[in-house]
Amino acid sequence: MQSDTRKILEYAVSKVPQVTLGFWIIKIAATTLGETGGDWVTMSLNLGYLIGSAIFALIFVGLVSGQVKADRFRPFLYWATIVATTTLGTTMADFFDRSLGVGYPGGVAIVFALLLASLAIWYKAEGTVSVQSITTPKAEWFYWTTILFSQTLGTALGDSVAGADRGGLGLGYEYGALIFGVGLAIVAGLYIWARISHTLLFWAAFILTRPLGATLGDFLDKPIAEGGLHVSRLYASLILLVFIVASVTLIPQRPARRVEQA
C-alpha cells in the first residue's frame, strides 16, 4: 500500500516542473503574453471581455483536462496551460473592473476573494496547498484553478497600480513594473535567508509575476503618449510566443520531486 502511494505521488508530481530561475523567466514571459494576447482578442479583434473570457475559458478547460490526463510531465503542455491561465486571467480581470463597472479596487477585491476561497477549499479538501500535494486529479484541478485566480489577481493589481482611471493609482507602467520587480526580489530574499513557508512564498511570487507581466505587456502595446512602446498587440504576442517556445526548448525542463519545496 505504501509503495503504491509513493508511485502515485511520484507520477503526479512529475507533471509539475522544478521551480528554478528558468521557471520564473518563462513564467514572466507567459504572463506578458497573456496580457498582449488577451488584449488582442478582446480589444484589437473587438470581441469584448465576456466573449473573450468564454473563448479562453474553453481553451483553459481543454488544456487542464489534457494536463490531468497526461501520463508524465510534458513541458509544452504545461506551459501552454500556464499561458491559457494568463490570457483568461487578463480577460476576466478586465471584465470585472471594466464591464461590471466596479473599477480597479473592486476588481482586485473580487478576484482576491475568489483566490482566498480557492485556497481555502483546496486546503479543506486536501489538508495542504503545497505544490507537493498534487497527487490526484482533484488536487490538480485545485492547483490550476488557484493558478487561474492568482493570474487574474495579478492582472487586476497591475492595472490598479499603473492605470490612472477607474480608481487606479496612476503610477504608470514603468513604475508598476519596478514596484512588482522589487516585490519579487523581496520574496526571493525571504526564500533564501528567512525561515518562512516556501509554499507561501511560492504563491506570493506566482501572484507578483503576473502584474509584472501585465505592466510589461501594457508597456509594449500602449501608445507612446501613454508611456508605452506602441508595438502591435499581435506582433508583441508573436514575439513573446517565439521566446517562450525557444526558452522551453533550450532551458532544462525537469519534473519536480517530492523532496523539493515550492
Rank of each mutant, 00 (worst) to 15 (best):
S3R: 11
G181R: 07
G106Q: 13
A185E: 14
P137Y: 01
Q67A: 06
T36K: 04
A214T: 15
E35R: 07
F206A: 02
G62T: 11
I121L: 13
L201K: 09
I28E: 07
I147D: 02
V61W: 06
L63W: 04
T209Y: 00
D165M: 06
L184V: 06
G154D: 07
V129N: 11
S133P: 04
K15W: 03
V83N: 12
P137S: 06
P211N: 04
L169V: 10
G167A: 09
A225D: 14
R210F: 00
A236Y: 03
T128I: 00
Y104H: 15
R257H: 11
A120R: 07
I224F: 09
T145Q: 07
Y143N: 06
R72M: 03
S133T: 08
I26F: 02
H230R: 11
D218W: 00
R258E: 13
A162D: 15
K7C: 00
T86K: 01
V13T: 10
D94P: 11
K222C: 00
P137R: 01
T91K: 10
V41K: 08
G52E: 11
I28A: 07
G170A: 05
S3G: 00
L178M: 14
L220K: 07
E126C: 05
V161S: 11
V259G: 03
I192F: 03
V61F: 07
A120W: 07
F96I: 15
W144I: 02
G168E: 06
I134D: 15
A225R: 14
T91W: 02
P105S: 08
L171W: 12
W193D: 09
A194Y: 01
G189P: 12
W144R: 14
I179C: 11
F180S: 10
T215A: 05
A139S: 14
D218T: 02
